[in-house]
Computed example of a mutant assay.
Amino acid sequence: MKQDNLIFLAPMAGVTNSAFRTIARKLGSSLVFTEMVNARGLLEKTKKSLELICFREEERPIALQLFGSDPVLMAEAACVGVEAGFDLIDLNMGCPTPKIVKNGDGAALMRNLPLARVIIDSVSKAVKVPVTLKVRKGWSEGDDAVFSLACYAEEAGLHWITVHGRTREQFYSGKADWEIIGAIKASFNIPVIGNGDVRGPLDCIRMMEETRCDGVMIGRGALGNPWIFQQCRHYLETGNLLPGPPVREVLKTCLRHLSLLVDLKGERIGVREMRKHASWYFREFPGAAALRREINTCESVKDMKEVLAKIKE
């Protein structure tokens, strides 16, 4: 996978399913990730895990993000991912969610570096596709575990390391520390992807200039704004800012998202999940609060289309 112009969608639980990934790829994300998948669940073929690894060919290149703390299971799950057709395997060692951390997974591995190293080595040796690693700045302020993890990733020949500039204790509050991203980039030869507080093309170019990172992963900045990827790419290539999408394009994309979600999950669940996305698409519009209240009452595709039609009018 080429290292140039890497600007892509971050994996986000409950958000980056096939529907959102399809739209993000169409609008310029150079790569997409599954929601994080439990390695054990994937090997046990649980319904949830099998649903999470479903993808469309038009989403490629696509990465499978795995979490877990058993090196053998992680390696076996990575092999299952390769057999399922994924182009890349990403190791999650940064998720701050309590239910993940309490099992020793996600960001908890930043406090168990020997185990983290074994997992990295086991997975990298098990598969032929690129393997990447996603971590946080540390467990808490002053923690330098990210340097050890970057060293392990480099020694194992991982494709890149993604660094989110917040500690586990911060969760998603406060400001992301981009200096740590630059410090990792300056200290190692492995490519470094920056993550945290990129809300638009000016943030993207500033992160790349300040940290010298090799690419940018965008998470919450893409919610309701999948155009952020083409805007960032255009600005990097031309130095010019693209205007925001017109209302008709936002509506068209929102309706396409709705259709993809319903195809993926059925009408009842698809419409319920679409409520948050539709609210994100139109949160900057006049009357957004009232619109959100209407959106949150929708139970069918018909209901959702009727509410969205009011925007067009």
Results as ranks from 00 to 15, higher is better:
Ser18Ala: 13
Ala75Phe: 01
Met93Thr: 02
Val192Gly: 01
Leu115Lys: 13
Ile120Lys: 01
Glu83Gly: 05
Phe229Ile: 05
Gly28Trp: 00
Ile295Tyr: 00
Leu260Asp: 02
Ser148Gly: 07
Arg56Thr: 11
Lys26Ala: 14
Asp144Cys: 12
Gly287Ile: 11
Pro61Cys: 04
Arg275Trp: 05
Met207Thr: 09
Thr34Met: 03
Val123Ala: 08
Glu59Thr: 12
Gly157Ile: 06
Gly142Asn: 08
Gln3Gly: 10
Arg117Ala: 11
Leu223Pro: 08
Gly200Thr: 01
Gly266Met: 07
Arg136Tyr: 02
Gly81Phe: 01
Ala107Thr: 06
Ile7Thr: 13
Tyr235His: 13
Met110Glu: 05
Ala288Ser: 13
Leu242Thr: 02
Cys213Thr: 07
Ser122Lys: 11
Gly221Asp: 10
Arg136His: 05
Ala24Gln: 04
Val198Pro: 03
Ile161Glu: 02
Ala186Trp: 02
Arg56Asp: 15
Asn103Gln: 13
Ala77Thr: 01
Cys151Tyr: 06
Asp121Ser: 14
Thr167Phe: 03
Phe285Glu: 13
Ala153Leu: 01
Lys47His: 14
Ser69Thr: 11
Ile23Tyr: 03
Gly266Cys: 07
Lys185Tyr: 09
Glu58Lys: 12
Leu242Val: 06
Ile218Asn: 03
Trp227Ile: 00
Thr132Leu: 01
Lys26Asp: 13
Arg256Lys: 11
Thr34Gln: 04
Leu9Ser: 07
Arg199His: 11
Glu237Gln: 15
Leu258Asp: 01
Leu202Ile: 14
Arg117Ser: 11
Ala222Asn: 07
Ala183Ser: 15
Gly106Glu: 00
Gly85Val: 06
Phe67Ile: 00
Gly219Asn: 11
Ala13Val: 15
Gln230Lys: 15
Ser187Tyr: 08
Ser279Met: 14
Ser49Pro: 00
Glu299Leu: 15
Thr297Lys: 13
Cys213Val: 12
Asp70Arg: 08
Ala78Asn: 05
Ala288Thr: 11
Gly196Trp: 03
Ser173Tyr: 10
Ile269Phe: 11
Leu149Gly: 00
Leu264Asn: 09
Phe171Ala: 14
Arg206Pro: 00
Lys47Met: 10
Asp203Leu: 08
Leu88Lys: 06
Val72Thr: 14
Lys134Cys: 04
Arg206His: 14
Pro114Asp: 12
Lys99Thr: 15
Trp139Ala: 04
Ala289Ser: 12
Arg268Ile: 14
Gly287Leu: 10
Ile53Pro: 01
Ala153Val: 00
Phe147Cys: 01
Asp144Trp: 05
Val32Gln: 02
Val307Ala: 04
Ser187Trp: 05
Lys2Met: 08
Leu223Val: 12
Phe285Ile: 10
Pro11Arg: 01
Lys47Glu: 15
His234Ala: 12
Met274Gln: 10
Leu133Ile: 10
Cys54Thr: 12
Lys312Gln: 13
Ala288Gln: 09
Arg117Tyr: 04
Ser18Gln: 14
Arg212Val: 09
Arg111Ile: 04
Phe282Pro: 00
Pro226Lys: 04
